[in-house]
Simulated scan of single mutants.
Amino acid sequence: MASTLPMAAIFTRNKMIGWTAVVFALQSWLAESPEQKRTASAPAYFSVGMAFMSVVVSYMPLLLPPTPMQATMGGSGTEAPAAVPPR
């Protein structure tokens, strides 16, 4: 769960899931035994880095706000189609 939680936070951009991923990753890194350290395929601090990256991605709209839409585009594309004129 601790390895997939940062990815879920990145895809949903949910801040609460991101911070939970950071806490779980830190706990698993601090509780890592020498046996786990020896047999692991990647160091535990990689999961901590991934969890922090999920928090950064969730706060990305605050750091880099999205660009405003241009007036020539004609809207967001989610509006209802134009009415058909009567014959």
Results as ranks from 00 to 15, higher is better:
Ala2Thr: 14
Ala2Val: 11
Ser3Cys: 07
Ser3Lys: 03
Leu5Ile: 05
Met7Ser: 13
Met7Asn: 14
Ala8Gln: 14
Ala9Thr: 00
Ile10Phe: 05
Thr12Asn: 04
Asn14His: 00
Asn14Asp: 09
Asn14Ser: 03
Lys15Tyr: 04
Met16Tyr: 12
Ile17Lys: 07
Ile17Gly: 03
Ile17Phe: 06
Ile17Gln: 04
Gly18Ala: 12
Trp19Ala: 09
Thr20Val: 05
Thr20Asn: 14
Thr20Met: 14
Ala21Gly: 08
Val23Gly: 12
Val23Lys: 15
Phe24Lys: 13
Ala31Lys: 13
Ser33Gly: 02
Pro34His: 00
Lys37Leu: 10
Lys37Asp: 05
Lys37Cys: 09
Arg38Glu: 14
Thr39Ser: 11
Ala40Thr: 07
Ser41Tyr: 07
Pro43Cys: 08
Ala44Arg: 13
Phe46Glu: 12
Ser47Lys: 12
Ser47Trp: 09
Val48Thr: 01
Val48Cys: 02
Val48Trp: 01
Met50Asp: 10
Met50Ile: 12
Ala51Ile: 00
Phe52Arg: 09
Ser54Pro: 03
Val55Tyr: 02
Val57Ile: 14
Val57Ser: 10
Pro61Trp: 00
Pro61Gln: 03
Leu64Ile: 07
Pro65Ile: 05
Pro65Val: 05
Pro66Thr: 07
Pro66Ser: 15
Thr67Arg: 14
Met69Lys: 09
Met69Ala: 15
Met69His: 06
Gln70Val: 04
Ala71Pro: 04
Met73Tyr: 07
Gly74His: 03
Gly75Lys: 01
Ser76Val: 08
Thr78Cys: 08
Glu79Trp: 04
Ala80Tyr: 06
Ala82Met: 12
Ala83Phe: 06
Pro85Val: 06
Pro85Gln: 02
